[in-house]
Structures are given as C-alpha cells and as structure tokens.
Simulated scan of single mutants.
Amino acid sequence: MKTSPLKKILFVVVVIGLLISVLMLTKYWDKSNHYDGIASGNGRLETTQVDITAKYGGRLTHIYVKEGDMVEKGQLLAKLDTRELEARYKVALAGVEQAKENRNYAQAVVSQKEIDLKHKENDFLRSKALFESKSIALVMFEDDETEYQRAQAALMAAKAQVTSYEAAISAAKAQAESIEVQLQESKLYSPVKGRVLYRLVEEGEMIGSGGNALVVLDLIDTYMTIFLPTSQVGLIDIGSDARIVLDALPNTPIPSKVSFISPEAQFTPKEIETATEREKLMFRVKVKIAPELLLGHLHKIKSGLPGIAYVRLNETMPWPDSLRMRDRNGSRP
C-alpha cells in the first residue's frame, strides 16, 4: 500500500513543528538549569514609587519639574498658593504681640499691687501694736486689717491676670505655629533621590487634601521580584548573595541581595494536605540591587527591563564563571 503525497507532506510539517517547538523551549528555558546549587526566577526590574502628596488642599501655583527629570533628596518640586495663609500668619503673629503687651501690663499691675500690699501690711502691723497697747480703738485696727486683706486679694487677682495672659501668649503662638506648618506643607519636596515618573497635575489646578501631585522613583530602591519553591526558599535568608542578569545585558551580572521573603505562599490552595502539594508552594522573593552600585548609575536605571535573578543556596559555594563580577579590565576574578 502506497503512502499518499499528502500524508508525507503532513508528516514533514508535523516533524518540523516539533523541531521548532524544541528549539523554542531550549532557547527560552530557565537558565538556572545550568547551575547546580543556585535558585533562579524570571522577573522585571522594579523601582519603589513615592507619591508626592499635598497634606492640605489648594491651588498649585508652581511645578518646578517635568516627567523624566532627576531630582535630589529635599529638592523643591511644587508649591501651593499661600497668600491666604500668609495673611492669617501675620494676624496670628500680631495676636502673639498683643498678648505679650497685655502680659507686660499685668506684670506692672502686680508690681504696683505688691507695693500697695507692703504699705497696707505696715499699717496693719502698726495698728495691731497700738491696739494691743490700748492706744487705738478696735474699729481702727479692724479697718487697717480689712485694707491689708483687700491688698492681698488684689495682688492675687493681678497675678492670676498675668497667668491668664501667659496662657493667651501660648495659645497665640500655637496658632501661629500651626499656620507656619501649613505654610511649610504648602511646599512639596522630594523625600528621595530619584527620577520624576508622573506629573499628575498642572500649574493652576486645584488639588485636594491628600491628593497626589507627582510620583517619584526611588532609584536607590531597585529590585526584582521572583517566585521560588519551598525546597529552595528554605535554604536562603534575608541578605543571601544574589545576581541579576538583564536580557539587555546578558554578560553583566549585577550584584544583589535578598531583601524580602514572603511569609505566605503564592498560587496555592489555602489548605495543603500532602507533602507533594507542599512542594508546589511558591514564595515571593525580592532581590535588591546593591545601593552603592546604583549611586554611580542612576541615569541608566530603567524599570521594567526583563531578566533573571539568581540566588546562591550555599554561601560557601563559589559563583559560576558566567555570574562572577568583572573587574575594571573586564575580566572575571
């Protein structure tokens, strides 16, 4: 029985398809299969995003940066309209000065009352001595005693007035300081050294309390997230040595450290009954690039680049030659 030409052609097409599939799988197969004692996973470079948020609402009068601009830590990025706050601040400062003047006047009254009390005390003591020697009548002694008591009460009232004005000064200062804080919070500064990712509002637009004005990438906090099985996660720790190899730089391993290991497994049922099922547990692991290395290459950092992160399971085991760091001459030690 002869085989028809159509069947031969179909057979050849199937064989070619299988060969192509094998080549594709070989090309894209996880490179960690070539390294014993090293865990690896595919991922993309990520950088921590920092929201630049307005604590108080208002109108944005100035935005000093554009998307893509590099910014320094503490750099002024945007400013809200503060004219009303500045007017309230002047009123609050005037209130502080007025309270101080009132306190000074009350202190002068206290000094006057102290002098008056001293005179009344002397009159009272003299009347007491004369009354005891029967030189004056009881009614005169009682009059001087009453005046002395009145002078004591007047001094106490004057001192209470000073205390009241002291409290008024504290309240006025607190109000001024509160407005001063609002003035400071009306200027939005970058808390990190990095790059502006998004500019969410424009000059002249209103922004609500807690609204985001910009998003800045904290380039020093650049990392790759991968997922590793239980058998490998149990052999690594926070701080374990790692390497990141980007697809764009396949011959340049980047020194890194494990900075996070998830306490909960991913992509698994909530209840695991058998050892076989437990072996399928995958844990999220964050591999962070060494900050000292990033400082010299901030302009080159691009989040989203795909690559592979490698984590050494045994710290005493040397890195394979292809994952070793290069020296200044380009050779591997």
Rank of each mutant, 00 (worst) to 15 (best):
residue 2 K to I: 12
residue 8 K to L: 13
residue 12 V to C: 07
residue 26 T to D: 11
residue 29 W to R: 15
residue 32 S to I: 02
residue 32 S to L: 01
residue 35 Y to E: 00
residue 36 D to V: 08
residue 44 R to M: 13
residue 44 R to V: 12
residue 44 R to W: 07
residue 46 E to R: 02
residue 54 A to N: 06
residue 55 K to Y: 09
residue 58 G to N: 01
residue 60 L to M: 08
residue 62 H to P: 04
residue 66 K to P: 02
residue 66 K to W: 07
residue 69 D to I: 05
residue 71 V to S: 01
residue 73 K to Q: 14
residue 78 A to V: 01
residue 79 K to N: 08
residue 79 K to Y: 10
residue 83 R to H: 11
residue 89 Y to C: 03
residue 89 Y to L: 10
residue 90 K to A: 11
residue 94 A to Q: 12
residue 95 G to I: 04
residue 98 Q to H: 10
residue 104 N to D: 14
residue 104 N to H: 06
residue 105 Y to W: 12
residue 105 Y to K: 15
residue 107 Q to D: 12
residue 107 Q to R: 13
residue 108 A to E: 12
residue 111 S to K: 15
residue 114 E to W: 07
residue 119 H to S: 11
residue 121 E to Y: 10
residue 133 S to M: 14
residue 140 M to E: 15
residue 143 D to V: 10
residue 148 Y to L: 06
residue 151 A to Y: 00
residue 151 A to W: 00
residue 152 Q to M: 11
residue 153 A to N: 09
residue 154 A to Y: 06
residue 161 Q to F: 03
residue 162 V to W: 04
residue 163 T to R: 15
residue 166 E to S: 08
residue 174 A to K: 13
residue 175 Q to M: 13
residue 181 V to M: 14
residue 182 Q to S: 11
residue 188 L to V: 03
residue 190 S to K: 03
residue 194 G to M: 04
residue 194 G to A: 05
residue 196 V to N: 01
residue 198 Y to G: 06
residue 199 R to N: 11
residue 207 I to L: 07
residue 213 A to H: 00
residue 214 L to N: 01
residue 225 T to A: 09
residue 228 L to M: 08
residue 232 Q to W: 08
residue 234 G to D: 11
residue 236 I to S: 00
residue 238 I to E: 11
residue 240 S to M: 02
residue 246 L to D: 05
residue 251 N to D: 14
residue 251 N to F: 14
residue 255 P to N: 06
residue 257 K to I: 05
residue 257 K to A: 08
residue 260 F to L: 07
residue 262 S to L: 03
residue 265 A to P: 02
residue 265 A to E: 00
residue 266 Q to Y: 08
residue 267 F to C: 04
residue 274 T to V: 05
residue 277 E to H: 09
residue 283 F to H: 00
residue 289 I to F: 03
residue 296 G to P: 03
residue 297 H to F: 08
residue 297 H to P: 05
residue 298 L to Q: 08
residue 299 H to L: 09
residue 300 K to S: 13
residue 303 S to E: 14
residue 303 S to K: 06
residue 307 G to C: 03
residue 309 A to G: 02
residue 309 A to K: 00
residue 318 P to H: 06
residue 320 P to C: 06
residue 325 M to G: 15
residue 326 R to K: 14
residue 326 R to N: 10
residue 327 D to Q: 05
residue 330 G to M: 04
residue 331 S to E: 14
residue 333 P to A: 01
